[in-house]
Design a protein around this nucleic acid. Structure first.
Lengths: 362, 362
DNA sequence: TTGTACGCGTTATCAA
DNA sequence: TTGATAACGCGTACAA
């Protein structure tokens, strides 16, 4: 019942009464073989339930047909979607994905890269804390391993699939300015370990300056605050006078709305909120979320395609940033005129917006 | 600059002026070596930037230290979170994850299993269309590969990390019954390829019967309808008289609310909605979603732990289902009394609920 | 058309 | 304490 012994091509050859090389040629259709032998080998393989060991193949051929992929976490749907995009592009090419996640930890990043390299992956697709400073990544590249980045803004010497975080954030500043906002804030989770987040702040900051607004407040959040609306509310309460918040991702933006509700503030009457990423659910919300819409799956696909190119010997070329889209939503409006209408605590927004953007997409 | 040649233990040995075996013993601390040789080997390894090839090791040792994992899609956060849970449990054990996704396709499932097995993974963690009928999976097990299932309800001969879908769905029926609902429907995406979905329907159906309600309508959705509120609205409109809908996952439940809004129906006044999975965002919504809360990451962790046990030679034992929780939300209420208040089109719910469940969690 | 033998990188055995 | 060698599963050059 338990046929625990692995059947190798040697077994097939013996069973078929021929040499190993012949069996290999038949099964791989890589060389000549007489019809009779061919048949014997094939039935032998069938009977024994033979299948090639990718290990032996990799060792002998020098290619593992495996791609290594490192992302901060699969629990973040943005990265998960990107990886899914990578999968889709790789499907049919014969490559498999060896995945590692670092939980946003720079140390773990390095270990993961080293382990991936030890498994002799044929290429690397990476999102990590600091690619430009990773010793492991540097060493991997020195050995000739092709590396393709995802999400990172361009870094010297690397190819990356990305959106222009700076420009996108500047666009948000523009929108705020156009509506008359002045007191704004940038809400960041994991600011120190994410170049994306830092670049978004930089772009937002620059955008505000360009429009003569005061510099935006930078509010750095820990996991706890981000996941607990009560804590978040307390933090926001400490920043008086804010009329608009740019959150570094959509989850944060939604959490801000919840926090605002707890504070008795109404979105967007008392506070405008814009997110980043453009997760699908944002547009299905009762109050559709205004956000920068990006396409993580496209990023994954482009990163994978770039890597495939590199592995085929092409030098590879940095492609332009993937497009982003400012998605209008009901969480963004002009600031309250500040004079009248200063009644307290009305837990829900005036709710005219709910249908506003319904037409855009189904 | 481009040191493309891979450095092997042989190079280290030559550089250190000793035999291969000695170098191996030093680097693995697996045997005796004189202090001098030890030092020479270690500096040689350093200088050359040597690291072991996991390939050679796997071939010789018979263990690849790699776990194969198959899920339908990483774009579904439920699976992504589960995989992340697997990762977390595997971290520190020395095992890496080789991931495949099938896009809910039974054919692709089989191919993926075969490929994973060919890479000689040491174990398999699987969610697929039909594990009990997969030839590839059967073959893999015959070769002695430990297999651990995720999400699937118990299947003869398999160990699985799961929630009791039937029971959870029956709970939903109970809640509907308690509130006085009678005309209900089960909304399913990918009904034919998901045993989870089918078991949820079965439990819901049984629960309705047990409470003397009419059998629930079974509404099967395609991708298009699920993602297009307009289409969804049209379908729902074809089912007159429904007062409560049980959606087979939270995204669907949120889409139903959007569709209801388009139809001029108010949730929960005109229609109650309950989801399944308990994604985090559901509780941050303006109208918090009533749903069955599960813990995908815990499922991943349990599946991984089970597999680790099996790989250590333990027979492994089927653990009880992971707990689920009925999460109260503002999308569930008694049906409208049907007599009065029959005015048309009021796009928003009365909105008293928004704060109702806020206390439960932050 | 066929089969032998080598090498891929490693570890374990065994004799020195 | 050391090092040569077999073995892991495969593809392939080369000889038959």
């Amino acid at each position: 019942m338990d046929n625990r012994q692995k059947v190798t091509i040697k077994d097939v050859a013996r069973e078929a009464g021929c040499g190993i090389a012949t069996a290999s040629r038949v099964l791989n259709k890589s060389g000549p073989a007489s019809p009779e032998v061919r048949a014997r080998v094939e039935t032998a393989a069938q009977d024994l339930g033979f299948s090639f060991s990718a290990l032996g193949r990799a060792l002998q051929g020098g290619r593992s047909m495996t791609i290594g992929c490192l992302v901060p976490s699969l629990a973040n749907p943005v990265f998960a979607e990107a990886v899914q995009g990578v999968q889709e592009t790789l499907a049919g090419t014969g490559y498999q994905l060896l995945i590692a996640s670092s939980n946003y930890d720079g140390e773990a990043d390095n270990e993961a890269i080293a382990t991936l390299a030890a498994k002799e992956v044929d290429g690397l697709i990476v999102t990590m804390v600091a690619p430009e400073r990773s010793a492991a990544l540097k060493q991997a590249r020195q050995r000739g391993l092709p590396v393709s980045l995802m999400f990172h803004d361009p870094i010297d010497g690397f190819l990356t699939a990305h959106v222009d975080n700076f420009e996108a954030a500047r666009e948000v500043a523009r929108r705020f300015a156009d509506l008359g906002h002045r007191q704004t804030a940038f809400l960041a989770l994991r600011f120190s370990t994410s170049d994306r987040s830092r670049n978004r702040y930089a772009g937002f900051h620059a955008g505000c300056r360009a429009r003569g607004m005061p510099d935006p407040a930078l509010i750095e959040l820990g996991e706890a605050e981000a996941n607990t609306p009560e804590l978040l509310a307390a933090i926001l309460a400490a920043h008086q006078g804010l009329t608009a918040i740019f959150a570094s991702n959509d989850f944060l933006a939604i959490a801000v709305q919840k926090a605002a509700r707890l504070m008795g503030k109404s979105v967007p009457r008392d506070l405008s909120v814009v997110g980043f990423d453009g997760i699908e659910i944002g547009r299905l919300l009762d109050v559709p979320l205004a956000t920068i819409e990006t396409a993580p799956d496209a990023m994954g696909r482009q990163a994978a395609q770039t890597l495939l190119d590199m592995m085929q010997g092409n030098p590879g070329v940095q492609r332009p940033p993937l497009p982003f889209d400012f998605r209008a939503g009901a969480t963004l409006a002009p600031p309250r005129t500040k004079s009248r209408d200063d009644d307290q605590v009305r837990p829900r927004p005036p709710s005219v917006h709910s249908l506003k953007t319904d037409l855009k997409q189904g």
